[in-house]
């Protein structure tokens, strides 16, 4: 595929050195088109998160390459990688990672603040993002005051706020009950369809995987 948004070539990742070395990825070739939704599934410890981190430029490969829109992440400077993550990628983690000291609105506006966008503009766009996840009434609350489902919806708003091309989600429903999980999944796929945002979701959840255009199964660091 030549128009791939994300593409890997013989991706290897080894953690640790010498006797503690562990090869988490053993040659992954993968291509994801713009607007596609991809589920990465597999057993615990198979290397799903590792793959996602490499795709998102959060970690560096031991060998092989990751290309985003044709640009090799391995050739990018720290600053270029930072601004790539800031403007093109959105992240959703199992543990939400909201800042407890900040309000819901400030949490959502964080990527814009990092991008040096004015407070007024940041707040306006953060409010828009909160509308998408139907949490505008909680904007002034502390992030710690929210329920798990609400926290994850705030995290989705934060992933959305900078208008990313790709959202990476690592077990977004992992810490939620089935009911709440479904709400979050529905939200994620609505956005994916409405805004043509590419979705890369690491999950154990069969329902979630079924909703994706494609499912990639990882076993022992390889695609099956």
């Amino acid at each position: 595929m030549t128009n791939a948004l994300l593409q890997t070539n013989q991706l290897h990742k080894t953690y640790g050195k010498r006797d503690t070395a562990y090869e988490a990825l053993r040659g992954v070739d993968l291509s994801i088109a713009p607007g596609e939704s991809v589920a990465i599934v597999g057993k615990s410890g198979s290397g799903k998160s590792t793959l996602m981190h490499l795709l998102a430029g959060l970690d560096t490969a031991t060998s092989g390459s990751v290309k985003v829109g044709g640009h090799d992440l391995g050739h990018m400077s720290e600053g270029e990688l930072s601004s790539l993550r800031n403007t093109k990628f959105g992240f959703i983690f199992q543990q939400f990672f909201l800042q407890p000291r900040l309000t819901v609105l400030e949490n959502v506006a964080l990527p814009l603040k990092i991008a040096n966008i004015s407070v007024a503009e940041s707040n306006r766009r953060a409010m828009e993002a909160l509308e998408q996840v139907e949490l505008t009434d909680k904007a002034k609350n502390r992030a710690t005051d929210l329920s798990g489902g609400q926290k994850q919806r705030v995290a989705i708003a934060r992933a959305l706020v900078a208008g990313p091309e790709v959202i990476f989600a690592d077990e977004p429903t992992g810490n939620l009950d089935t009911q709440t999980g479904h709400t979050v999944i529905k939200l994620l796929f609505d956005l994916h369809r409405k805004r043509h945002i590419t979705l890369v979701v690491v999950t154990h959840d069969a329902d979630l995987a079924k909703l994706c255009d494609r499912t990639i199964i990882i076993k022992d660091g390889k695609i099956q």
């Binding site: 720290e78 930072s82 790539l84 800031n86 992240f91 990092i114």
Partner: peptide, 15 residues
């Protein structure tokens, strides 16, 4: 953890 998040969200090391 907070530093990790800020970096993931695109804050540069110098920030």
């Amino acid at each position: 953890q907070e530093v990790g998040l800020l970096k993931a969200l695109g804050m540069r090391p110098r920030g």
